[in-house]
Simulated scan of single mutants.
Amino acid sequence: MSMLKIKKGDTVKVIAGKDKDKEGKVTAVNHKTGRVVVEGVNMLTKHTKPSAANQNGGIIHQEGPVDISNVMYVHKGKATRVGFKMDGDKKVRYAKSTGEVID
């Protein structure tokens, strides 16, 4: 996978799937598979056995990965596409809707 336009810590909006229109913060990005984990999106139920870390075991709810094509970066409350441009001799991301540099 080439350079991804979404990074850890970005706020994104889900644009497709069962959690469409939900927003959340990206907690993990997998460059190899092109998937992201977003807070509160694609909640999965996991049954765990008792272990040293979790004495009781039981049912745990956790976020599952979502394909990166199903999320859009949120800039000033609106979902926007992300592009790259050169700012002097540095490559930066910018919001295509406003043209403002993101980072």
Rank of each mutant, 00 (worst) to 15 (best):
S51P: 01
D19L: 11
G9F: 07
Y94T: 09
T80M: 05
M43Y: 08
A53F: 15
P50V: 08
G17I: 14
T33G: 10
V82D: 01
E100W: 00
T45K: 12
I59P: 01
K5S: 02
K7T: 03
Y94G: 11
A16E: 15
T11F: 02
V82F: 00
I6W: 00
L4V: 10
V12M: 06
K90P: 02
D10E: 06
S51Q: 13
H47G: 03
H61F: 15
A53H: 14
V14Q: 06
A16Q: 14
V36W: 00
R35T: 13
I60T: 11
G77A: 02
G64K: 15
K76G: 10
V71E: 01
N54D: 15
H61A: 08
T11G: 00
T80P: 08
S2V: 14
K90C: 01
D89E: 13
H47D: 13
K91Y: 03
A79G: 07
G34P: 02
V66I: 14
A52Q: 11
D87S: 13
D21L: 05
I68E: 00
A95W: 03
G58A: 04
V12W: 00
K5E: 01
G99R: 05
S51A: 13
I60G: 01
V92R: 13
S97H: 10
G83A: 11
A16M: 14
G57I: 01
T48M: 11
P50D: 06
K78Q: 15
T27G: 10
H61W: 11
D67M: 14
T27K: 12
I68W: 00
K7V: 08
K46P: 04
H31A: 07
E39K: 11
T98G: 10
K96Q: 14
D10W: 02
N70F: 09
G99F: 02
K78T: 12
M43H: 10
K32W: 13
V101Q: 10
V37F: 08
E39A: 10
V74N: 04
T27C: 05
Y73T: 05
E63V: 14
M86V: 12
D67P: 08
K20Y: 09
I102N: 06
E23M: 11
N42Y: 02
I59T: 10
Y73Q: 06
R81K: 12
K90W: 04
V82K: 00
S51I: 13
E63K: 15
R93I: 01
L4I: 08
M1E: 02
H75I: 02
M1T: 01
G40N: 12
P50L: 06
G57W: 04
N30W: 07
I6H: 01
V12H: 03
G64E: 05
I102A: 00
V12S: 07
K76R: 14
V92L: 07
